[in-house]
Each structure stands twice: as C-alpha cells, then as structure tokens.
C-alpha cells in the first residue's frame, strides 16, 4: 500500500491546491493563524480557493468561508496577501461572523 493512502487526497486542501496549480488554475491559500475563545477550526487549518471561487477545506464551521472566498479572489487578482479577522456576528468590521463567540485571524496569500 502507498504511504499516501494515509492522506485523504480527495478532501485534503493542500493536495487539491497542488492539482489546481498544475492544471494552470489561479489559486489562493487561506490559513487560520490565530484563534481566541471557542473557534471551530484550529490554527493551521486551510481553505483553498481558485480564481472562479471554487473552494475546498475550511477555516471555520462554514460561518465565514463565503467572505474569505470573496477576499481570496481579490488576493489572486492583486497578488498581495491579506490578514482577515472575524469575530462575533455583531461586530461591525465584517458582515459575517462566528456564532460560537470566538475570534479568528485568517491569512490569505496567492499560491504561485
């Protein structure tokens, strides 16, 4: 048996991202770099996004992925990395938030 059988290749964001880059797609990588309080996904979790808004993986329990995808498409366009911060839903900085009450910082960079 191949050692790679230990990675769930069909759902692994970094494996998927490598495939997308090989196919010539433009790709951004979002990473949870800091969490406070109860956060749904641990530091280091990845979401990968292509130029058309297709995505795999997660940085939250589905609460903020939509906003991250929008920002990622911007990052793909400019090539300039961004730091995003999400808190509870009633914070004014973002339209979306985390219902769990935690806060997360997500770093978005272009894969090139």
């Amino acid at each position: 048996m191949e050692a790679s059988a230990y990675i769930d290749e069909a759902r692994d964001p970094l494996i998927i991202a490598e495939g997308w880059v090989k196919d010539g797609r433009e790709v951004a990588l979002a990473t949870v770099v800091e969490t406070w309080g109860s956060a749904p996904r641990p530091v280091g979790s990845h979401l990968v996004i292509d130029g058309e808004g297709n995505f795999q993986g997660s940085v939250s329990g589905g609460c903020v992925e939509g906003a991250v995808v929008t920002e990622a498409i911007d990052v793909i366009g400019t090539g300039k990395a961004k730091m995003l911060e999400f808190g509870v839903a009633d914070e004014t900085a973002w339209r979306v938030g985390l219902s769990c009450g935690g806060r997360i910082r997500v770093y978005v960079e272009r894969l090139g």
Binding site: E2, A3, S4, L14, I15, E18, V21, E109, L111
Partner: peptide, 17 residues
C-alpha cells in the same frame, strides 16, 4: 507560498514525514 514549496510539502506529507 510558491508551487515548489507546496510540491515539496505534499511530498513530505505523502511520505509520512
């Protein structure tokens, strides 16, 4: 992250390193 780093990283992960 560039594609070279990504490829090397995934190669290490596949090899359980």
């Amino acid at each position: 992250m560039d594609r070279q780093v990504l490829q090397t990283l995934n190669a290490e992960r596949r090899a359980r390193r």
